[in-house]
């Protein structure tokens, strides 16, 4: 259970960054941390003690493999994460061009 808890702590660090930091890049970094922690958690779920990676080296091999499904899912999730991070950063870049700051408290034209 400890590895799971490690993921949860990493998750909380990500939340911490998003919640308390005011710099857009820091928020994006916190967001990446969130994403890593969830991916890691998912990958841990499929881990099986003393089992091999799910690749057949030869045909007569014994079938003691780790769970391949979470790996497949995490593969998808990693790529989705990359996509969202890229989009987030491009918006951040454009915001800097327009507002000349990364401070989230200065970026408040939309209110009420």
């Amino acid at each position: 259970m400890l590895p799971y808890l490690g993921c949860i702590i990493l998750f909380l660090i990500g939340i911490y960054a998003i919640l308390t930091k005011r710099n857009l890049i820091k928020i994006a970094i916190g967001f990446c941390l969130l994403e890593y922690s969830v991916n890691l958690f998912f990958a841990f779920i499929g881990y099986k003690k003393d089992a091999l990676a799910p690749i057949y080296a030869n045909l007569s091999q014994a079938r003691n493999f780790v769970d391949p499904i979470p790996q497949a899912l995490v593969l998808t999730a990693i790529v989705i994460g990359l996509g969202t991070t890229a989009l987030l950063l491009s918006v951040a870049l454009r915001i800097y061009e327009k507002y000349k700051t990364f401070d989230i408290k200065e970026i408040k034209r939309l209110k009420e």
Binding site: A43, Y47, L52
Partner: peptide
């Protein structure tokens, strides 16, 4: 955790 494909990606 025996996930080489993931590691590469």
């Amino acid at each position: 955790t025996q996930a080489p494909d993931l590691a590469i990606v």
